[in-house]
Design a protein around this nucleic acid. Sequence first.
DNA 1: GCAAAAGTGTTGGGAGTACACCCATGA
DNA 2: TCATGGGTGTACTCCCAACACTTTTGC
Lengths: 232, 232
Amino acid sequence: MTDTHHPPLAVTVDLVVLTVREDELQALVIRRGEAPYKGRWALPGGFVQPDEDLETAAARELQEETGLPRERVHLEQLASYGAPNRDPRMRVVTVAHIALAADLPVPEAGTDAACADWRTVSDLLSNRTKLAFDHTQILRDGVERARSKLEYTPLAAAFCPREFTIRELRHVYEAVWGATIDPRNFHRKVSKTPGFVIPTDSMTTREGGRPARLYRAGNAQLLHPPLLRGTD
Amino acid sequence: MTDTHHPPLAVTVDLVVLTVREDELQALVIRRGEAPYKGRWALPGGFVQPDEDLETAAARELQEETGLPRERVHLEQLASYGAPNRDPRMRVVTVAHIALAADLPVPEAGTDAACADWRTVSDLLSNRTKLAFDHTQILRDGVERARSKLEYTPLAAAFCPREFTIRELRHVYEAVWGATIDPRNFHRKVSKTPGFVIPTDSMTTREGGRPARLYRAGNAQLLHPPLLRGTD
DNA sequence: GCAAAAGTGTTGGGAGTACACCCATGA
DNA sequence: TCATGGGTGTACTCCCAACACTTTTGC
């Protein structure tokens, strides 16, 4: 702590905002209107302000991009990325976060940034698409974090509306993991894991057959035992 | 990305360097010689230089503090901490890393910083000790990361010399988790988990009774199945 | 009745725990 | 020979995947 020389350096937050739409895992991206990487998709993000904590900055950016009420979104820090040339304009260290939310109306109402849109993760991570900066890597890391957190935390509920059926919860797992899950064993497991989901009185919400019970997210932080992906 | 105003802001790396000594989990700390927090223990760390990646900076600081060969240490990013007033002198965002290493000679040869020393984690996290800045929280998070990573990765081997006995590996688990483990079941589990450890030809290294086989770390990244802490 | 989804029962195998037991060394 | 730790065998339990089966709706 002796250096008092400050070559220009900025700290930003970038967001991997994930949701499940149309039975697929999708991420929020913004089309860049200016160089560098003009025309490419990028993750939403922005500068950390002088009086802001990192999480506060991430929450503010999230609010600006999606307009979602803060309490309906799960937000957590992912990792920081600081390769010296990751932004050609200047040294920028970014603290990436992931945000998980239920299916959102449409992001069109982006305040300043050009056009925001939901794109499937499989599209964004395929060779067909190149995101701006190092955002492909950040997205990849964020998706992997989400995938593994579904195993041992009740985080899947963050992708659901406040009240949801077991079926909807299962669809989240299937979309995020890209696997199919036995509905009957899933039902038993979820309803028996303490604190995962809390049954409500309401039933209905038909999706075809017999009415399903509605549940709310429980207060467990960790799943005992975890729900594991197949050991493929 | 429109703001070009830069109130002074610095990015540092801080290190949670962990080892197992005397059957206890210990961390490397440095006594601060100057205000603020003069006289308190702090985690080693320093500024990220203009041309350095974050991991490079962490590796450099680690080298400066411990002199360890890079390949004998597991180094990974932990999380970033950026509360506006975490350092009273100026805005500092720190990217914390954890470093796991085998029992080290002695850290005395600290280059610039005052006196470095190994202290047990239980001491540093007890109410008797107050670390400088937010380092108590960083240490707590780093230890928790290490604890949980032992469950599902072969990381425990990072705390061992290059060749080690199953017994030594078990002592790592016992020290980090603060639990006792059945030696016989542990032996079976470790030697049967694919890629965890690789037997060598050498045996010996007596610790008392029958000679034990020496192993090297395998190349597995994930443990299937994981070794779980008791569901206490 | 029939299709479709919700939810429960049953069963066989695999993994974990507890612990008896044998092996190989030094003293 | 005994003490000490290394390593294997075994029995019991529990969890989980697979799937048969019942329940409750709409058409």
